[in-house]
Design a protein around this nucleic acid. Sequence first.
DNA 1: CTGAAAGCGCTTACAG
DNA 2: CTGAAAGCGCTTACAG
Lengths: 361, 361
Amino acid sequence: MRTLWDKTKTGNINCDVSAMKKGRRNTPTIRDIANMVGVHHSTVSRALNADQKQKISPKVVRAVEKAADKLGYLPNIAASTLKRNRSFALGVLIPDITNPIFPPVIRGIQDVAESEGYTVITANTDDDPTKERDAFRMMRGRGIEGIIIATARLSDPTVDECIKYEIPFVLVNRTVRHDGVNAVILDEDCGVRAALDHLLGLGHTRIACISGPTETSTGAERLESFQNFMKIHELQSDLVERTAKYTVEEGHDACRKLFKRNKPFTAVLAGNDLIALGCIDALNEVGRQVPHDVSVVGANDIPMLSRMVPALTTINTPMYKMGCQSATTLFQVINGYSSDSVVLRMQPRLVVRDSTAPPQP
Amino acid sequence: MRTLWDKTKTGNINCDVSAMKKGRRNTPTIRDIANMVGVHHSTVSRALNADQKQKISPKVVRAVEKAADKLGYLPNIAASTLKRNRSFALGVLIPDITNPIFPPVIRGIQDVAESEGYTVITANTDDDPTKERDAFRMMRGRGIEGIIIATARLSDPTVDECIKYEIPFVLVNRTVRHDGVNAVILDEDCGVRAALDHLLGLGHTRIACISGPTETSTGAERLESFQNFMKIHELQSDLVERTAKYTVEEGHDACRKLFKRNKPFTAVLAGNDLIALGCIDALNEVGRQVPHDVSVVGANDIPMLSRMVPALTTINTPMYKMGCQSATTLFQVINGYSSDSVVLRMQPRLVVRDSTAPPQP
DNA sequence: CTGAAAGCGCTTACAG
DNA sequence: CTGAAAGCGCTTACAG
């Protein structure tokens, strides 16, 4: 069993196990290369850095690269971070990675970051201010050069801190109340209008809305758009419930509250897909079929939803693209290319599936 | 627009914008605290470190803590990493975060890591050796103290490197061929037997298997278990296809290959849920109903699958728990508590839903 | 209990 | 083109 770890077998000759401490990097340094090549270690540093390389003779550069390769040299990023005051690391704050809307956002961020040579550190906040503050501190301690925030409330202490400490940041998915921030969000009004036009087109007039938390821009904006739309079309818009979280359970409970009002409705605009699912569950519990008795529209278009029955009609949010765009914007800020702050509103797309149908006469 | 960034408004007085460079940390140091309190900075360091604190008089500790608080001090982790040769960071290698089986694994790892004061850095490899090598180098450059690998093939260069460089590592979900490694995986044989017992109990005898890639332990073990089971029960086990990846598309294509053999089958054991979905798609395309004509069993029990129609019968894999367990095991290695390597096999649970039924007579 | 010193591995202004 | 020196912000053995 131990043979796999045997030094002679692994051939790791530099390694004195008796001196091993946990976390030991045990990797050659710039000085080892310098000794091997016979130059000063500052020369090695220059030869290995793209923007300093041209100061060094090609011959030396080649010798250094060869030696680095032979020794298996890896730059110590902690050392370079300390000296240069640049970590090549980004932070990402999300509520919960197991919420299916976030993995594509993160993936987009990671892909762009990787192409720029940056590492990303993500943390789950669970919408808990204490966890969020701790995660943010940790990231600052690690010297992140910028942060992407997917957890923003309309009034948000973390955003305030970023402004205070002049940490480059970009909001994604949700934004804050005041402007002067960079944000990549959805054109919520456009999405809501598309959904309501669709319902109206099917003949619905008694439409309820179960909005997400109105401390978030997504919740507040979708609700506002709903109310505007209903007003313009001279429809009653008082069948509204708000949830405290974007979850199936909250959607379920909000829908039950809707029943208690004893006001008839034939369609529900849900704050997002999870709320829509909870809503469908609640409808089924009281024997109302979707879409036969009630139509339901979600938002986000999380994966696999097209396979459920009824397949959910929903406002698609381009999560991966938004992740990419938020990272791109962040790099513009970090690199000083961006002067003024900008709110990018991505276009949603209504995906009509089987959870919407004309109302029963 | 600029007012939000106004220094006077933010009250960030320490900050000389003209001297600002990108990535600037711009945070007080241990020396600022030392000046404020009137002690040597080494005393501050001790007062701020849990394991050195008892060496310092309580009075000084309190004064230091107060000053640190007042100044908004944050330890520079790059500096402490460099000096202590400990990064308090862990690496995680996954194929793709947008594959729904991984977010719970990552969340489990992050939760345990957080409780130990560690940061986790995850990277997507897309099963691409080049990306994997680059990500692994980046992590080593950042001095990760250990790594959790969810990407292992039966023969795996990254695992070999961990052994060579004596980097603590734990495999999760998949393991390698040789032993002497720490791994947290599923008891695949148990899961497969439960699934096949279930099918047998329903009356199926002509059972096909679409296994995942057999370079992965999950693919190889499930296939082997399938073949063993069939042999023991004296059933034909030649209806086997292997996919190159764990995807819907691969499952779909493999299922079509199955048709071409012109050998009847009434049930399919799929390598995982995504393969099962592709398989169901392929069956539907040729007009065969699930479960009426063919029963399908998946593996993993990814979220939302209970809502699709037919709701998938599947072998549940406790992903979150496995993530937690892999991190716990890794900390045991890092902290030197674990002597011998251990392979933990978690118990799967067959979740019987609607994609399995008795075969037609 | 506290201070002074050395050093972790880099980078970079300064000299030549 | 290259070297020597200083220093990023910590930690810790050594002295007292």
